[in-house]
Design a protein around this nucleic acid. Sequence first.
DNA 1: TATTGTTATACTCTATAACTATA
DNA 2: TATAGTTATAGAGTATAACAATA
Lengths: 153, 153
Amino acid sequence: MDPTSNPLDRLLEISELFRADMARAFEGTGLTAARTHLLWVLAGLGPSPQQALAGAMGVSARNITGLVDALEAAGYVKRSPHPTDRRATIVSLTDAGEVTMSDMARDHANLSTNLLDAVDPADRAALSRGLDAIATRLRALIQEEADAAAVIR
Amino acid sequence: MDPTSNPLDRLLEISELFRADMARAFEGTGLTAARTHLLWVLAGLGPSPQQALAGAMGVSARNITGLVDALEAAGYVKRSPHPTDRRATIVSLTDAGEVTMSDMARDHANLSTNLLDAVDPADRAALSRGLDAIATRLRALIQEEADAAAVIR
DNA sequence: TATTGTTATACTCTATAACTATA
DNA sequence: TATAGTTATAGAGTATAACAATA
């Protein structure tokens, strides 16, 4: 992860830079990476019960309770009763939350454009294909490992 | 971070896959991402006082105390007195820690090779150049933001 | 007076298990 | 009997502040 700067290491460096930059950007907003992830998922799904969010994010229901508590206190989301199932709670973005999400989507798009602009136009298609190939191979390797682990169990 | 699969989003997806895969690989080893990061830094610097590790990792001294406690209990590192400064503690890899790190370096190299092999040879140079350009631009943007924040202060 | 590492305290993310209210 | 969400409890990573020993 540190030395011998091959493309993979550079890729990991870039993701580190993203992470650090995000953490800095959240200062004073009441947001964190985990809370923002929930907002992205919620923006994608639309108003959802907490169980659906837990499934979509791959975390425990207990975790969702905590994240929604914090986001509700900060004014980004609200809870309302499920119309037919009285056990369930529907989480949705507040108006302020909607504004925050469209700002974020805009910033994200601008950053993408800005970073792509730094790449030689002649290299862009190959970059895209290369990243696709790496992601596909990596997904396959992880699947293999999961299958191997399942056999052991 | 979720939809519209442009190269940047694919890049973030790849880093997510790495992270999830690593977490799985650590099960039962007593290691975590943060502890492994310390081991990488320590392997790079050689035996070091905790302050040096804190500086190199960009975290607080308190945090290093906790990570070294855990790594020492698991047998990966040991503490010894600094030869001349009696305030300081020197952290170094144990024999078991050295073995773990060379295994990890080997696995990391194999994975890099494996993933690069998935990329069309004709695309590899452009991929490398593209990632370099993106990393450079991103570093510059972060520096700009840091400078702007410094002016405000 | 400044620095090294630790203790004290606190916040966030995460998990499992037990419990309540409902299906 | 099963499911949705909460409370209880716990562990990991992180931070700041106060403190002891040493420079």
